[in-house]
Design a protein around this nucleic acid. Structure first.
Length: 458
RNA sequence: GCCGCCAUCGUCUAGCGGCCUAGGACGGUUGAUUCUCAAUCAACAAACCGAGGGUUCGAAUCCCUCUGGCGGCACCA
């Protein structure tokens, strides 16, 4: 490969947070840059003032940071680079590859209505392309600059994961490049910035395929070298439509709030449209950087399956725990501690963790599973059978407060009373935790302590 | 409507002309384990490779047509 590999993501600050689809392309861009020792750049495409959302950028960057995707440059802002786009738009007009357009919004709307009535594809009719626009008009009237797409021929580009893609020029619209408010459209913005920022690989969503010929034309007209294009398949809803917030949680912040680990999210995203060459399901970012190959990305758009993500998240949680290294437990404890906003003691969390971690698929589930350690249940899931509970009470009265001793005592007492030990365990569980499901009850009692346990027997 | 992309178990995928009576993972089912639930371990069900034509001694793998799905067609990105 010649030259430096430089990739980028170009989110626009128009949403609540980082979209999971953006996180996906960010991951791929990041991995491609890193595996070639290149740079990964963040560029904020804030050229649509009407859709601008306050605070969006900060939240996007925060989510990126949470994921652990660090950028080498940026964030750049297109809104701070306006003169640049104007300069190149003017140059295109001079070269005869673009033209001023003074059409009003009303005329354009009318035009589209008529086209629709005639069952024609909606596109600019070339009104201002035909008339020679006087320079003076540019000073006094509002105008946009449009790309003058050749009437003949075709435009072809090579997509790294899809091969050659060709479009007929006569079907390409005379795209607006510079809006009347002086801001560039996406099309001018990306091309100018990708060139100026020396982006070598443009890796983005499939949704951009049909506008790529416009970009290719722009590169040609400006005399610039084309980047490598790779259009990733779109993540989809279970109904196969493009992933949307109406049908699926799409904000990265949501996954964080639900207790997903960034490593697990990234790992799961990595398996979308790509598979580890050895068939591994669980692998780290570093490993992905080592073995990933853009050319092996699938072209089929995958459905985002949150159930598999949950499984993966649980696997990550447990892998921390089962790893022999002592700090592992502390890592998860710390995450839970932070996740519950530090309202529970870290020491207790650490003690309780081994009992609940293999029952957790997310950090969030810690509370429903282990909440009873920190507060008495407000109500019981069902009434306690006092007769059975009495067996437990009796057994526990003069008993070492270790789960082994308690188990022995309860089993003996049950046998003497002629009841099933398992039923006694269950009543004990309900009485103390309020629930019929939870971590091993005796080990829980050991941590909870004799005093607190007895107090819950009332 | 026009243009483009895509098509292997419910889902994520392996497969890149013979190793495929199509493999793995999630999910599902059954069993083992067990104080509940998990975890773990076993096993099972699940795609005739969208359909139809070719090419070839041989196709999930190459070609064509159709069908279906998705995406795009803004002074939004």
């Amino acid at each position: 490969m010649t030259g430096q590999v430089r990739t980028r993501i170009a989110p626009s600050p128009t949403g609540e947070n980082l979209h999971i689809g953006n996180a996906y392309t960010a991951l791929i861009n990041y991995v491609v840059a890193k595996q070639h020792g290149g740079q990964f750049i963040v560029r904020i495409e804030d050229t649509d003032r009407t859709r601008f959302v306050e605070g969006s950028e900060a939240r996007i960057l925060a989510s990126l940071a949470w994921l652990g995707i660090r950028y080498d440059e940026g964030p750049y802002h297109q809104s701070e680079r306006l003169p640049l786009y104007k300069q190149y738009a003017d140059k295109l007009v001079e070269n005869g590859h673009a033209y001023y357009c003074f059409c009003t919004a009303e005329r354009l709307a009318q035009m589209r209505k008529e086209q629709e009535a005639r069952h024609e594809p909606p596109r600019y009719d070339g009104h201002c392309r035909k008339v020679k626009s006087e320079k003076s008009k540019v000073k006094s009237e509002k105008y946009v600059i449009r790309l003058k797409v050749p009437e003949e021929g075709t435009t072809t580009f090579t997509d790294l994961i899809r091969g050659e893609i060709t479009f007929e020029n006569k079907l390409i619209d005379d795209q607006v490049l510079l809006k009347s408010d002086g801001y560039p459209t996406y099309h001018l913005g990306v091309v100018v910035d990708d060139h100026l920022m020396e982006i070598s690989h443009v890796i983005r969503g499939e949704e951009w395929i049909s506008s790529t010929p416009k970009h290719v034309l722009l590169y040609q007209f400006l005399g610039w070298k084309l980047p490598v294009y790779a259009h990733m398949p779109l993540l989809r809803n279970p109904d196969k439509s493009k992933l949307s917030k109406r049908k699926n949680p799409v904000w990265v912040s949501w996954y964080r709030e639900q207790g997903f680990l960034p490593e697990a999210l990234l790992n799961y995203l990595a398996t979308m449209a790509w598979a580890h060459p050895e068939g591994k399901e669980i692998f780290s970012l570093d490993e992905m950087i080592r073995v990933f190959d853009l050319a092996n990305v699938q072209t089929t758009a995958p459905v985002f399956d949150i159930e598999k993500l949950r499984w993966m998240n649980g696997t990550y949680l447990r892998s921390y725990q089962s790893s022999a290294r002592l700090p592992a437990r502390q890592v998860v404890s710390r995450q839970i501690f932070d996740f519950v906003h530090r309202k529970y003691s870290k020491e207790v969390i650490e003690k309780v963790l081994p009992l609940v971690i293999e029952r957790m698929k997310s950090l969030k589930e810690f509370e429903s599973l282990a909440g009873f350690f920190f507060a008495r249940p407000k109500e019981l899931e069902r009434p306690v059978n006092q007769g059975l509970l009495r067996v437990a009470k009796g057994a526990l009265e003069s008993c070492d407060w270790s789960h082994e001793a308690m188990e022995k005592a309860i089993r003996e007492a049950s046998e003497q009373t002629g009841v099933k030990a398992r039923d006694v365990f269950m009543e004990l569980r309900v009485a103390v935790t309020g629930k019929t499901v939870g971590p091993p009850i005796l080990e829980s009692l050991e941590i909870l302590g004799e005093e607190e346990t007895i107090a819950r027997f009332i």
